[in-house]
Computed example of a mutant assay.
Amino acid sequence: MLASLPLAACSDESRLVVHTATGDHTFTVEVVDTPEGRAKGLMYRQELAEDAGMLFDFKQERPVSFWMQNTFIPLDMVFIGADGVVRNVHVNARPRDPTSIPSDGPVQFVLEINGGRSKEIGLVAGDRIEHERISNEK
């Protein structure tokens, strides 16, 4: 019998703040920074709390792309530079879709949150992300 583990039991969990024109929005994120962790991501998960997400750390800036082949919930993908500035946002990636979703240029981080959540909080390119792994130097 498989047990459903809380986000904290799966890996490194931490606080992330999104600074938008509508205010500051806090998320509890699971951080993945290994090739295996990044490859699995949120695949096979059936739900994600409204204030939860996953932060992918690629350790250096580079072009990246994601797909939703084995992902069962719609997600927003927030592509973030090493400096914490949002480069682009892909809203409502479709579950089980094999189409590649690329960053618009090099990024170091990708934040996945519930589909449509970025629009709810007014998150757009140019906004800033605050997290212990992100430099935030201007």
Rank of each mutant, 00 (worst) to 15 (best):
G116P: 01
V31R: 08
T71V: 02
F66K: 03
F72C: 14
I101T: 04
C10M: 13
P63K: 15
V124Y: 04
G116W: 00
M1Y: 14
F27I: 04
R133V: 10
G116K: 02
P106I: 06
S103R: 03
V89E: 02
M1F: 09
T34A: 07
D24C: 09
I73D: 11
K138I: 15
M54F: 13
G115R: 00
Q60K: 09
P106Q: 12
E61F: 01
V31L: 15
R45A: 07
A3Y: 13
P102T: 07
A39F: 11
A8R: 15
P95F: 14
V110L: 11
D12G: 11
G41V: 00
N114S: 07
M43C: 00
V107A: 03
Q108E: 03
T20S: 06
D51H: 13
V124A: 14
F72K: 15
C10T: 15
G81F: 02
V32I: 09
L55I: 05
S100L: 12
A125H: 02
S103F: 14
G53S: 05
I101Y: 05
I80T: 05
L123Y: 01
D12I: 09
N92K: 09
A3H: 13
A21K: 08
F66I: 00
E120D: 09
Q69E: 13
D83Y: 06
V18W: 01
A93H: 08
G115P: 01
A125N: 03
R38L: 09
D51E: 08
R117I: 01
L2F: 14
V85W: 08
S65F: 11
D83C: 06
R15Q: 15
R117N: 00
V64D: 02
S135N: 05
T26P: 09
D51Q: 10
S11Q: 03
G84W: 01
S4D: 11
V29W: 03
M77V: 04
E112N: 01
G122L: 00
S14E: 09
L123W: 01
V32W: 05
D97S: 05
A3V: 15
L2A: 10
A93V: 03
T22L: 12
Q46M: 14
H90E: 05
P98S: 03
R15E: 14
R87V: 03
E13N: 09
L123R: 04
L42E: 00
A3Q: 15
T34R: 07
R96C: 08
M54A: 09
E50T: 04
E61N: 01
R96S: 12
T28D: 10
R133P: 06
